[in-house]
C-alpha cells in the first residue's frame, strides 16, 4: 500500500531567524555591517573638509544628484535613509532583546568578581546607547539643523565649523567617535564570527583589520573637530 507522503513545510525563514539567538545575532551582524559600510563612505566624504568649503559643499550637493536623471534631486538620499533607519532600529531592538536574555541567563552574579574581557567587549552595550543618542543629536545638529548654531541650509561646511566651534559640540562628537572606534573594534570581528566567516587561520588577520579600521575611523572622524579647534579648518 502506498501512501502519499508530503514533506512538512519548514517554518518561515524570517520567523526562524527571529526566534533564535543565533538568528538575532545574524541580524545584528548584517545591520552592523551595513552601518559600518555607510560610516566608511561617510568618513571618506567628511575628510573632504580638508580641501576647503567649495569641495565639501560641492560634495554634499553631488550626494543629492546621485542617480540623476533617473532619480530626482535628493531621492538617492531618501532611498538610503530608510535602509539605514531599518539597520539602526533592527540593530537596537535585537541588541536590547539579546541583552535582556543574557542578563536573565546569569541571574546570580559571582561573589568573587574579576575582569577578564577586553575593554571594547565590555563597552558594547553602553557604547551602543551612546551611539544611539549621538545619532539623534547628529541629525538634529547637521541634517535638520535644529540645534545648530548657524543652521544655514545648503552650507554644510559652515554649519559643521559652527558646530565644532562649541565646546559641547566637540565633547559630544569626540566621545561618540571614541565609542565608534571601540564598537567597531569588537563589532567587526564579532560580526565575522557570527556570520561564520572566522576560522583559526583568519582569526589574527581579522582582529588586526578590526583594530586597524577602528583606529582609522576614530582618528579620521576626530581629526575634523580637532582641526576646527586648532583653526586648521575654519
Amino acid at each position: 500500500m502506498a501512501l502519499a507522503t508530503r514533506t512538512e513545510r519548514s517554518p518561515s525563514l524570517i520567523g526562524s531567524v527571529w526566534r533564535s539567538t543565533v538568528g538575532k545575532k545574524t541580524i545584528m551582524a548584517v545591520s552592523g555591517a551595513l552601518m559600518l559600510g555607510y560610516l566608511i563612505a561617510h568618513l571618506a566624504g567628511n575628510l573632504k573638509v580638508f580641501f576647503g568649503a567649495d569641495d565639501f559643499n560641492g560634495y554634499a550637493h553631488w550626494l543629492r544628484t546621485i542617480g540623476a536623471p533617473i532619480l530626482h534631486h535628493g531621492w538617492f538620499l531618501w532611498l538610503v535613509r530608510p535602509v539605514l533607519l531599518a539597520a539602526v532600529v533592527l540593530h537596537g531592538i535585537t541588541a536590547y532583546q539579546l541583552s535582556r536574555r543574557d542578563r536573565a541567563a546569569r541571574p546570580h552574579k559571582y561573589v568573587h568578581q574579576r575582569q577578564r574581557q577586553s575593554y571594547a567587549t565590555r563597552t558594547m552595550r553602553w557604547g551602543g546607547v551612546i551611539l544611539t543618542l549621538f545619532i539623534v543629536w547628529h541629525i538634529l545638529d547637521l541634517t535638520t539643523l535644529t540645534v545648530n548654531e548657524r543652521a544655514e541650509e545648503g552650507h554644510p561646511y559652515e554649519n559643521l565649523v559652527a558646530s565644532f566651534n562649541t565646546w559641547y559640540g566637540n565633547t559630544i562628537y569626540i566621545t561618540a567617535m571614541v565609542a565608534v572606534g571601540l564598537h567597531v573594534r569588537h563589532g567587526l570581528w564579532s560580526a565575522a564570527q557570527t556570520l561564520g566567516m572566522n576560522s583559526a587561520r583568519s582569526d589574527r588577520a581579522l582582529k588586526a583589520t578590526a583594530n586597524g579600521l577602528a583606529l582609522v575611523m576614530t582618528c579620521g572622524f576626530i581629526s575634523i573637530p580637532v582641526s576646527v579647534m586648532l583653526g586648521l579648518v575654519d
Binding site: T21, L98, A105, S190, Q193
Partner: peptide, 13 residues
C-alpha cells in the same frame, strides 16, 4: 535557546 542559556557576545571567556 529553549533551555534558557544566554546568547553569544563573542567575549571569548
Amino acid at each position: 535557546d529553549a533551555e534558557g542559556f544566554g546568547g553569544c557576545t563573542n567575549t571569548g571567556e
